[in-house]
Amino acid sequence: MFTELDGMAPGEMVSFTFEGRTVAAKAGMTVAAALLAAGVTATRETPVTGAARGAYCLMGVCFECLMVINGVPNQQACMIPVQNGMQIARQRGAAEIGP
């Protein structure tokens, strides 16, 4: 479990939903970090075997933290700051882009 350091300055909070669950996080946190703080490590299921994967590098290099954010698939969760009302879901397999 990732937790915030003691004595951190309080900040504006935002709330978003993750697969039906409401999660609160400090504004400015990336989606990946906010989910780690909420105890969520798995961000996606691979398109090849459906294996569970989670953020590895937190800096946009590994592409493991791909998630569906506000309906848009394959977003790098470590590169996107949380916003109020965001809808976040794990990326399960190939992107749902179709006719």
């Binding site: 350091l5 951190m8 400090k26 990336t30 970090a33 590895y56 937190l58």
Partner: peptide, 12 residues
């Protein structure tokens, strides 16, 4: 590096 980023950027 990810541990560093979690700490630096998010205090986690």
């Amino acid at each position: 590096g990810a541990a560093q980023i979690a700490l630096k950027a998010h205090g986690l």
